[in-house]
């Protein structure tokens, strides 16, 4: 059937003018409805993007974005200052370290966890495991970080357990540089691994039961069924999420870092986003900090685009 918005009943293409009028006639109500949504995105997403222009200027709030003078080096002065600063490599190293550690230690956990839950036959036990393991996901970061602070302090129970296991130190672990990444990653696994297993559980439950039946008839035992039916059934999801996760390798959020770090461990804990926060909103170096943030945004955006392209190619699925 010809689309009445594009073609005449005889199948001839309509003129642009007729198309616009017909489209508007049919969707006018919807356009009115989407206006507030557009207003939101323009005011709270696109206006700040325009505001990021101050990365290339010496922004003065008195003059405003457009009348402030351009920064030196053809506007790139703040970027160059950042690249040449002592902080650049430190922030890059910390961001990538935390991100990769999360990828290596955090990524497989939900997969294994989902596979284990999937084997449980007792529905009640299964449900309780899920309820309890999802729970930490809903606790606020402020609370999670304050729990971490209490538990890894000198008399916290985590230090106590470590001492029972032979650890001889007795200081607050948040003051120990080498302890920061493990604390960050382990607490993240505690908070989110259960929740992140949901998507794998959904993929597992989508596997056709007849495949197991067929494997059984072919004489495959449980182990071989897992290898030949279960794992292939979720490989697509795993690859997809892995690729998308790699696309985020340069973005470590500032909130948890800010709630946990202190002067003793800055050398290892400070990442790009927390530095942007400190320089920009604590010290008030608006233009410089916006430049650092923009540098990070551009890298992240490029990585996501590449990751999505790769994902679409490899798995046939992607973010868009």
């Amino acid at each position: 059937m010809p689309n009445p918005l594009l073609n005449t009943p005889q199948g001839k293409p309509l003129s642009l003018g007729t198309r616009i009028t017909r489209d508007f006639k049919q969707y006018a109500g919807a356009y009115v409805m989407v206006l507030p949504v557009l207003a939101f995105f323009i005011i709270f997403s696109y206006k700040p993007m325009l505001g990021a222009l101050i990365a290339f200027k010496n922004f003065s709030p008195r003059l405003g974005i457009f009348r402030s003078s351009w920064a030196g080096s053809y506007g790139f002065e703040h970027f160059l200052n950042f690249f040449n600063s002592y902080y650049f490599w430190r922030l890059l190293r910390n961001t990538v370290t935390i991100s990769f550690a999360g990828l290596i230690f955090g990524f497989p956990v939900p997969i294994v966890f989902a596979l284990m839950i999937n084997e449980v036959k007792n529905a009640k036990f299964k449900k309780s495991v899920q309820t309890i393991s999802y729970m930490p996901h809903f606790i606020s970061l402020v609370v999670v970080c304050s729990m971490i602070r209490l538990f890894v302090s000198e008399d916290g129970f985590i230090v106590y357990i470590m001492q029972q296991l032979g650890y001889t130190g007795s200081q607050n672990l948040l003051n120990v540089q080498n302890a920061f990444v493990p604390i960050y990653i382990l607490s993240d696994v505690w908070q989110n691994a259960g929740w992140n297993s949901i998507i794998y559980l959904a993929a597992l439950s989508a596997i056709d039961l007849e495949l197991y039946e067929a494997a059984r008839i072919d004489g495959a035992n449980r182990w071989r069924q897992t290898v030949h039916v279960t794992l292939p059934g979720i490989t697509g999801t795993i690859i997809l999420l892995l690729i998308l996760r790699i696309g985020q390798v340069m973005s470590v959020g500032h909130e948890k870092i800010i709630l946990l770090y202190n002067d003793f461990i800055m050398e290892r804990a400070d990442v790009i986003s927390s530095y942007v926060y400190r320089r920009g909103l604590v010290n008030g170096d608006w233009s410089f900090s916006t430049a650092v943030g923009l540098f990070n945004s551009v890298i992240n955006f490029t990585l996501v685009i590449m990751a999505n392209r790769l994902s679409n190619k490899v798995t046939g699925m992607g973010l868009w």
């Binding site: 918005l5 489209d23 997403s45 993007m49 942007v276 920009g280 916006t290 923009l294 945004s297």
Partner: peptide, 24 residues
């Protein structure tokens, strides 16, 4: 099927992956 579907969808999606940053 609306003419404006694609441009508006793109506008919305783009904002998900790119932002002006904290200070702006």
């Amino acid at each position: 099927k609306s003419m404006w579907h694609k441009p508006i969808a793109m506008l919305i999606l783009f904002s998900m992956y790119f932002s002006g940053g904290l200070v702006p």
